[in-house]
Each structure stands twice: as C-alpha cells, then as structure tokens.
Write a protein that binds this DNA or RNA. Sequence first.
DNA 1: CGGTGCGTTGACATTTCTCAACTGTTGTGG
DNA 2: CCACAACAGTTGAGAAATGTCAACGCACCG
Lengths: 232, 232
Amino acid sequence: MNDPAILETLSALPHFHLLEPDLRERLAALSRSRSLRAGEILFHEGEACRGFFAIRRGGIKLYRSTPDGREQVVHNFHGGQTFAEAALLNIGHYPVSAVATESPTELVEIAGEPFLRLLREDARLAPAMVGSLCMRLIALVERVEELSLIHAGSRLARWLLRQPSQAATRGFRIELVLPKKDLAAHLSMTAETLSRLLRRWQDEGLVESERGSLTILEPDRLTSLGEGDPEA
Amino acid sequence: MNDPAILETLSALPHFHLLEPDLRERLAALSRSRSLRAGEILFHEGEACRGFFAIRRGGIKLYRSTPDGREQVVHNFHGGQTFAEAALLNIGHYPVSAVATESPTELVEIAGEPFLRLLREDARLAPAMVGSLCMRLIALVERVEELSLIHAGSRLARWLLRQPSQAATRGFRIELVLPKKDLAAHLSMTAETLSRLLRRWQDEGLVESERGSLTILEPDRLTSLGEGDPEA
DNA sequence: CGGTGCGTTGACATTTCTCAACTGTTGTGG
DNA sequence: CCACAACAGTTGAGAAATGTCAACGCACCG
C-alpha cells in the first residue's frame, strides 16, 4: 500500500508535478497500486466512479460497446497519463469502459471521495489541476480538428506530423506505441485503408513504413496533404 | 477600464458563470478590454504569458511558425470562447502565436499574475474552473466519439440525439442555429450528403426536415442508427 | 511444430464526394 | 412593386474514396 513508487508516479503527473511535497504525500496516502494483464477490465461503462487513475506502465483502452457487438474506441492512454478525472469531478459514473492493453499494466488508483475532500480542503490542489486539464483540452481540440478532415490521407498526415519524433538518418522516426490496426481505428479508418495509404506513400518516397515504426521522409509534402485535399 | 461590458462578458463564460458576484467583480477589476483589427498580432510564440483572453466578438487564429517559414494553424476561436488559460496556468509562456482574423475583434484580457494570485487566495475560483473544464472535456470527448463513427448517418443520428430539443406535437423539435451546410461541415460531410440523408429519413418517417428546424419523430430508430451501422 | 494475431494484398460492393443544374427564399435597388 | 442577384437547399449522374470479405505471408510464442 505505502509503495514509494506511488509517490514517484504521482509526482511525474502533469496534474501534480508542481505541487509541494507535503501535498503530494497526502495524495499518495489516499492512493493504491493496481496491476492488470492485457484484456483485464478496469471498469465498465455506467459503473459508479470510485476514483481516477494514473498509468505507471502499460496501456489502457477506453471503449464503448455497441449493441451489435462491435466496440468503439474512445481513447488510448499510456504511461504517465491520467484518466477518468472528469467522471469523478463531474458526473459520478464512468461513461465508458476501460481495459488493459498490455501485460503488465500498472496503475495508481486515486480514491474518489478522499480526493474530493482534499480538493475542497487544500486550496493548492485545484489550481494545479486546472493547468493540466487545459493541456488535455488542447490535445482533444486538435484531435477533433484532425477527425474533421474528410480524406483518410489528410487525417493520417496530420497525425504523423503531430507525433513527437526522434531525428533519424534521413528523416523523423516515429515509434508506434499502438499496433497499426489500433492506429487505424484512432484515425477512423479501416486497417486496410491505412495499409494501402502507407504503401502508396512509401512507393512515392514520402514515408518509410515498418513494423512498429514510421519514418517521415518528406514532411513538407505531408503538411500539404494534411492541409487540404489536393492529394499531391 | 472599468467597462461594465467586461463584467458581462466574464459572467457569460462557463469558467465563471457560477461564481458569486463579488468574485466576478474582483475578476473584472483585473481585466481590461482590447480591440484588434484583422491581421493584428495579439502575442508571439515563446513570449512570456501576461494573461489569458476571452473573445467578445470577432475571431482569433492560433498558429505556429515552422522553421521553413510556413505557418501551421493550430486553432480558431470565436465569440464566447476563452484561450491561453493553459499557457498561463501551466507553462508560463505562449506556445503559439495569435492573430486576429476579423475586424473588429474585441477581447477581454485577464491579467495573468493577478489572476494567479486570486486563484491562490480565493478557494472558490479554482474548483469552479475545474468543473467547467471537465464539462468541456466531456463534451469534446463526445464530439470525438461522434466524429469517429464511420457512417455519415450514424454521425447525424448521434448529433440529433444530443441536441437539447423542445417537445412538439409528435416529436422533438430542434431549432437549427446553423445553416444546414455548416451543420454538414460540423459533422464532417458535404451539404449534399446531409440533404440526401434527411430526405431519406423523412420519406421513412424518421424525422421532419424544415428550413431552420428538424423534428425527431422516431428517436428509437435514430438511436440504433447512431449506435451501429445496421442502417435499419 | 502448429497456432494465433498482425499486417498486407486483391476483388468487389458501397458510401460518399464532386460537379452541375435547378428551385425557392431573401434582400436590394430601381 | 418588380427585377434581379445572392444564397441555402435539393436533386441527379458519374467518379472516387473507402469499406467489406477473403486469402495469404510472416512473426511471435507456447
């Protein structure tokens, strides 16, 4: 329970990394570690919200099940990210389901009621959260813009250019944290369409597509693809 | 400086409209009006953050200059929206540049340092902002879900069901605040596709489509359309 | 070695976009 | 009051993008 790793994980979060140590320790005191294997369910859509979560390692997929058995991915979270704060702070239940996507996936769960109490009692906590919520908002707005693009190629180009990338020999290399089929779902297209897009761009020398990574060779042409439909 | 319109503008913001009047007045006291013409720069990327902004009328474009001299549009804001909170609350400098896109563009600037002080001193302010930021987060997440749907019909059905509607004789009537072509763009489809969808649904007795309003006649079938692709 | 899951490719069906023409409304100026 | 332009909305025909289904290769893992 009193895992020092909890404190460490919390300290690294955008929500809390500006907090004074004593406050971080009070947060750690109302948190606990959880470990899941790939496929294990963390919570179900509609469940009462008992707390929110920070990811130490692994990944969590938020999804909603449709009546016809398909599932719609709402978001994927990875190490260093938090989720379900909004559920806790506003609506009191989880609006989506959450499942671990990797083995192991290690989480810190911050208990809901005690956290809300702390939020009311200590005036330093809320301002810190305001800041990090703003960051999340900005990221989501960018996602909306991206999804609003009509052409699958534009959406992919935009996504590629927004990824933090490491310089490589001839271009920018992007390590994929998702399998390509999940990337396709994230971009609201089928795995086949993504595959064909990447193949065409590779043939044209725009990108290099490998298993687990993508390399951007001609950022400028990608930018124009991302901006409009000209497709050239 | 002591423009009553400032108080009015601030009161209409989601961030602040639940605040007690005395607190709103303290906010107004540390705010000032600004007016720009199209093309005027509000702030430059990298500049120290002096405050954040609410738009009274007009528009603001946030953009980033790329090394090769081109500019990448990050977002466009319009009346009733706020921006640059994240810069103030989190990183201390503007990560993008901002320019007015219309003449005139009228803003309220909330001074950064005094605002942060007020945020620390008055414990009512931050929780209010956390609440409204969470609401925006949830709304955006729903929008992302909506846009993630592959079929145009699903997106439209979901949108229709999310609108606040007034009961009418036989169904729920939705007053359109946008022209249909703008609604189509919002749903990431063309005006023609929207028109054909509405015509088909009207022929099938699902909805009633008029200029300026839509009426939902069979919410249940719309729900199933919005949930999956069965299209029946 | 066989199984499982990701990624690719091909053939085909469907949706959706594009382009163009047409209608009806609204607003403007003579 | 009418003619006319401007614009939203509709409709049709054909093209293009994208989804669906099915088969296959390839890596990883027990």
